[in-house]
Computed example of a mutant assay.
Amino acid sequence: MTITVRDLRPDAPADLEGFCRVRDAALPFLLFTPASVAHEITHTHPDARARKLVAEQDGVIVGTAQLGLAHDAPEPGKGFLNVYVDPAHEGKGAGTALRKAAEEYLTGLGATHLYAWTLDAPRNRAYAQRAGYRASRSAHFLRLDLTTASLAPLPERLPPGVELRTGADFAADPRPLFVLDTEVTADEPSDVGAEFTDYEAWVAENWRHPLLDLDLTVVAVVDGQPAAFSVAHTDGAGRYHTAMTGTARAHRGKGLAKLAKNASLHRARAAGCTVALTGNDTDNGPMLAINKWFGYEICATEVRYVRDVA
């Protein structure tokens, strides 16, 4: 029952399917497809030095790890590793083997702080502490049943100067959405942070992401400029995930994010999506309030741990 750790092969369907199977079993609140996993391997910015590892037992993938450097963080030296094991194979050493391989790789790259998310469960938290990590911040996973949700009706008339467009309306030139995403992401609560400066990298990683659904992504435009948006990911199997909802600083407090998300949820239900998923940092009070208003319920919580490398 030897555990073997190796790199995931993006050109091997069995590897991609095994990675998704483990992630779906361990973390059913996010969307993974073979295409999205392969895309992330091949299109993540080179400066991230990113890798995806798998742990095999008797030829079966039982654990996964996603790791790299937070190259777009304001401060250098921050590495990330997120390890997940199939619940049916926990306690057999796969997680520890993946963690040690990830730590060795990241410290070899010069990372001075290692960040890892883990589900908020006593066993997981105790393991992280034994491994030398300290708790940092937390985030909630939220779920909304679109088959029964009482979505607010779409407004018959929009505020003066406001119009709703879809992501598809920006297909020819997504740069205005890059500008909005840069501002919104920079203001998100985080202990790592991100600053988007490379437009072409953003296009490759985000705009061309296989899960991005341009028809369900809704942008609130004010006087011709994107002011708020709700970015939709779908997996083709009825699941819809809000990848980002946010408002430009100059337009906050006007209800534009709620307006865009409501329109996106209506579009998702009309397109046949049955469940809506999202996640929010526990310090992101405004977004948590919006999601509560829609009827989302917290279905799990995760905690980010950090280890300071001597």
Rank of each mutant, 00 (worst) to 15 (best):
L81W: 05
S230T: 10
H113Y: 11
N82K: 08
A243N: 10
A248F: 01
D15V: 01
V162P: 09
T185W: 03
E183A: 14
K254I: 02
T118M: 15
G68T: 07
R304Q: 15
T274W: 04
L265I: 03
G18S: 10
P174H: 06
Q66C: 03
A186E: 13
V219E: 07
A116Y: 10
Q129V: 13
A126H: 14
A101E: 12
T118F: 09
A289W: 07
S136K: 09
F178W: 06
E183P: 04
Y105C: 05
A276P: 10
G295L: 08
V219A: 02
D308M: 10
L67D: 02
L53T: 00
A237Y: 02
L214R: 15
L30R: 15
V5C: 06
N280R: 10
V231E: 00
L109V: 07
A168N: 15
D308P: 02
V221A: 05
R134D: 14
V54G: 03
M1A: 08
I3E: 00
S136F: 02
T44I: 08
G253D: 11
D215I: 03
A38P: 00
A26T: 05
A50C: 06
G18T: 07
A65E: 04
L212Q: 03
C273W: 00
Q57N: 11
V309N: 04
G279Y: 05
R21D: 13
P13N: 06
T182S: 13
G193V: 02
V54N: 05
A111S: 05
R130L: 13
D191E: 13
T64P: 08
C273V: 11
G253I: 07
P87Y: 00
M244K: 01
H209Q: 10
K254G: 02
M244L: 15
A228N: 00
G272K: 08
T166V: 14
L144N: 05
D169A: 13
V203Y: 03
A73W: 07
P28I: 11
D169C: 10
H209M: 06
V22E: 01
A135W: 11
H140V: 12
L265V: 04
A139I: 02
T242W: 01
D58T: 01
R137Y: 12
F80D: 06
T185V: 15
G77L: 11
K100N: 12
F80R: 13
F29C: 04
P122E: 12
R51K: 01
L31P: 02
D86K: 08
D308E: 15
G224R: 13
G253E: 13
A257C: 12
H241W: 06
E297Y: 01
L31T: 05
L81P: 00
L114C: 03
A257H: 01
A102Y: 11
L259E: 04
P176Y: 06
G272A: 00
